[in-house]
Design a protein around this nucleic acid. Structure first.
Lengths: 196, 196
DNA sequence: AAACAATACGGAGCACTGTTCCGCTTTGCA
DNA sequence: TGCAAAGCGGAACAGTGCTCCGTATTGTTT
């Protein structure tokens, strides 16, 4: 849809064949390593898994964060595109918002430690945080606005706060069976309703 | 009150005078450095600020986490002791729970990055997490049980989940003015009420 | 007061990060 | 086939947490 935008923030398509091959190998290897070792996996491990050297990884992705962003780009895109669809399909805007947030949680929770990484000061994870937020914020804002306009949801909330709260609640999900992030988010989303 | 317990998990009081002096200097220096540089401040910085070597810091506090725990011990204690008091004072158990959580938030938010540190896989921060939780969990459970017993709060929630959710929501508070952790926690706590 | 263990100290050094740098190789074009 | 441009590998750098061990301090015993 908006491939023009995509070129703006994604890595450029290399001119040479070997470079393209390596870039793809890096993306595949990173995806695989993230699954087994989490998004905090050492850069060296990813380079080794892809069969390339350190220099190569950093030419294609100037920073760890850029690699993570590239790996999860498609899923973020899917989340972005699901927003309007759900809004039109759902019985009410609040229901649509709830479903969309479920989608977002799925994304965060399936990636090992992504939610935690999003809020790490270290390294260039602010970049990661900013990048994901930039894409998701408008979508979330639309859903929230619609829910507010329909009178279902209290008007004194911004999409940014909501998105961050959900992201935060997902941290550590799966590490301890006693903590159920989805449940907590459900509680929060329920609390969004206009107080009767 | 329970000083016996305290000896169990805290650092031992050293026999020699210089050792005691250094231990206190370390605690003071750490507290100061945590304020200016956050709880992630390099161990070397703390050692330097205290005017001691690396060996000294690690003899007194085997791990970064142990130092953090020792520094914040008094405030955790205050939080623990406030639980029963609030429960008896508050108009209702749910109100007491809310006030106690406010206290907990104050604790987390005043410390630069403590909330984030609590959920870091890196280093020995699990120790930190476990230690704080171990102390606060019973208190929170008592408050929650009382609120459930009074019929104010839904019964299908455990204190562990609640405590973690609150801790998570506090991550990043103060970093971005658009995110208000207290507000999000308030929303969540409100959602705890038994659905009418 | 002096000798002497026991205790504690300092900081160099190790293992592990993310990231940079640059001599060498591969590629694609002329 | 020649050759510049593009790309590559991995050694090296800086910044972590933490360990180790030769040296200094302390408190006790003669």
């Amino acid at each position: 849809m908006n491939d023009g935008d995509r070129n703006g923030s994604g890595p450029e398509r290399p001119r040479r064949k070997d470079a393209r091959r390596n870039q793809q190998a890096l993306l595949d290897a990173a995806a695989a390593v993230f699954v087994t070792s989490g998004v905090d996996a050492p850069v060296r491990d990813i380079a080794t898994a892809a069969g390339v050297g350190m220099g190569t990884i950093y030419r294609h992705f100037p920073t760890r964060a850029d690699l993570v962003i590239a790996v999860f780009r498609h899923q973020i895109d899917a989340c972005v595109e699901a927003g309007p669809v759900l809004l039109e399909a759902g019985p009410t805007p609040h229901a649509a918002l709830g479903r969309w947030i479920d989608l977002f949680i799925d994304f965060l929770v399936t990636k090992h430690g992504l939610a935690a990484a999003l809020h790490n000061d270290k390294a260039g994870f602010e970049t990661l945080h900013a990048s994901f937020l930039e894409r998701l914020l408008p979508v979330c804002a639309d859903l929230l606005d619609a829910a507010v306009a329909s009178g279902e949801v209290r008007p004194d909330l911004d999409a940014y706060g909501l998105l961050r709260a959900v992201g935060n609640l997902c941290i550590g999900e799966g590490e301890d069976p006693r903590y159920d992030a989805r449940r907590m988010v459900a509680l929060l989303v329920d609390g969004l309703r206009r107080p009767a």
